[in-house]
């Protein structure tokens, strides 16, 4: 067996282990979906009536791609918690003492988390259709949007592994769980950045979350809430590049954090 095949085999064994967790304790992924559903109900039906989209269009079709992207971003918590638990309980050390590739453990984790997110995304897409959301951008555009969402999730996954390896103690986990909120709101997920003060709107417009959400709105054929500008004109490109930048920055940091376990 070649080294690559061996690594993939080992990764798959670890992916199956992680998937079994969700099978045995389904409440974590189920709550994660319910949480996104709750956000749709809260913002779509409770607050949405008061929100207008610049350039016109209904709020619900504007909101849903934002929620899709947001649910991918919140995946960072699931990844981080799982990695931190394994590290704390010594499972990571046990893996490290096995004659397996160092890449197998994070790759296995990535496989499981991406599968989990794909299922979650499917549920959200179907749920969206049930409440009247439509993707009118054609099959190609829809598939590309889904691919961009999972690509964004992959970047969050790499950051999640990094945080899980470096954060020690419950305080760090709580801090991340709190901080994802301002990061989520400081974007175009819920409201158009044009409605914010100019400088804040600029930050929100340029967030990686906004790039993916804006690209999805365009590809799904939903209202974009943007009246032009570089970001709006290059949303798909940015949705490809932003996660690529995050992956490029955090992959070496993660590898370094993994090596530092040997200190």
């Amino acid at each position: 067996m070649t080294a690559v095949a061996a690594t993939l085999r080992q990764s798959w064994i670890i992916t199956l282990r992680d998937l079994k967790h969700w099978q045995r304790e389904p409440w974590t992924p189920v709550f994660s979906v319910l949480f996104s559903v709750m956000l749709v109900l809260m913002f779509g039906y409770l607050l949405g009536g008061a929100i207008t989209i610049p350039g016109g269009g209904d709020y619900l079709p504007y909101l849903l791609p934002g929620i899709f992207a947001l649910s991918m971003m919140f995946g960072i918590e699931a990844t981080m918690t799982a990695v931190a638990n394994d590290t704390k309980k010594g499972v990571t050390d046990r893996f490290r003492a096995l004659p397996i590739s160092g890449a197998a453990v994070p790759l296995g984790r990535a496989g499981a988390d991406l599968l989990n997110s794909a299922v979650e995304l499917t549920v959200l897409l179907v749920g969206g259709v049930l409440i009247g959301w439509r993707a009118t951008g054609g099959v190609g555009g829809t598939l590309l949007a889904v691919a961009l969402l999972l690509w964004f999730r992959f970047a969050m996954l790499v950051i999640g592994v990094f945080l899980g390896l470096t954060i020690r103690g419950e305080g760090g986990v709580t801090a991340v769980q709190v901080l994802v909120w301002p990061a989520g709101f400081l974007s175009n997920a819920f409201v158009a950045p044009e409605s914010m003060p100019a400088w804040l709107g600029l930050v929100a417009e340029w967030s990686p979350l906004s790039a993916t959400a804006a690209a999805c709105r365009q590809l799904f054929g939903n209202p974009t809430g943007a009246s032009g500008g570089f970001v709006a004109d290059n949303a798909v490109l940015l949705a490809v590049l932003w996660p690529a930048v995050l992956v490029a920055v955090f992959t070496p940091l993660t590898a370094r954090a993994y090596r530092r376990l040997a200190r």
Partner: peptide, 26 residues
């Protein structure tokens, strides 16, 4: 290696833990 504290997967069954570590050993 049997480290301090039990480094097992709490959610997996006993047999599943052993099979997983055996498979990871090739």
């Amino acid at each position: 290696l049997v480290g301090q504290g039990t480094a097992l997967d709490e959610v997996l069954h006993g047999r599943e833990n052993l099979v997983m570590f055996g498979r990871l050993h090739g």
